[in-house]
């Protein structure tokens, strides 16, 4: 058999083929980034003696089926909700000298509003026909109020923003002592604990 040299395969078009595939994958790729509002549900167990919450420590947000807001028995626009929640949480109405006095609050210290952030509870009541969009907007505004206050306190105590540091920690971008940061974050969370309660939605006609 005569041995023939195999002719070399022309690889000049390989780049073109690879480019074609590359462009296909570039176009179809959606790097999904799911973000959202995280929440912890209360465990489903019978509460034997529910704690009594004073009326002044409750911030009631009522959303009706037409997506209208009733905050503390007053009709309110969504854009005003954040400030109203901040005012309520930051009020610090406990009288000076009492153990419940909140030293870091900068609110108006009205006696008819919340005693301190630890006691203040935000209660959201939805109608079953409230739209999900409205529900999320309300939750978003309330979380924003908490974040605003937490950022203020972390700026005062440590000189950085609570939300940004938490994000860094979650994404493992933080260079430094993570445990120390974790305790600092928890300290700030303790200053303004997230107390959001959700009542069972009312059925129509109730």
């Amino acid at each position: 058999m005569a041995r023939r040299a195999t002719p070399e395969v022309n690889a000049g078009s390989m780049a073109d083929i690879a480019f074609l595939l590359l462009i296909f994958f570039l176009v179809t790729t959606t790097i999904e980034k799911d973000k959202g509002i995280a929440r912890q549900l209360p465990p489903n167990e019978e509460v034997t003696d529910p704690p009594i919450i004073k009326q002044k420590n409750l911030f009631i947000v009522n959303v009706n089926k037409n997506d209208q807001l009733l905050v503390e028995d007053k009709l309110m626009e969504l854009k005003d909700l954040r400030q109203a929640a901040i005012d309520f949480l930051d009020n610090g109405g406990a009288p000076a000298g009492s153990p419940e006095r909140c030293n870091y609050c900068k609110g108006k210290r009205l006696p008819e509003s919340s005693d301190n952030p630890d006691k203040a509870v935000v209660s959201v009541q939805n109608h079953r026909l409230t739209s999900y969009k409205m529900y999320i907007s309300v939750q978003n505004e309330l979380v924003a109020a908490y974040n605003h206050l937490r950022n203020r306190e972390s700026q005062r105590l440590y000189g950085w923003d609570f939300t940004e540091m938490k994000k860094d920690l979650d994404e493992a971008n933080y260079q430094g002592n993570e445990e120390e940061l974790q305790t600092k974050l928890e300290n700030i969370q303790k200053l303004f604990p997230l107390k959001l309660s959700e009542a069972e939605p009312k059925k129509s006609g109730q």
């Binding site: 980034k33 973000k35 959202g36 995280a38 907007s137 979380v143 939300t163």
Partner: peptide
């Protein structure tokens, strides 16, 4: 999806 800006990342 509805829009919000006070968000956290999901651990997939």
């Amino acid at each position: 999806l509805p829009k919000a800006d006070q968000v956290e990342k999901l651990k997939k």
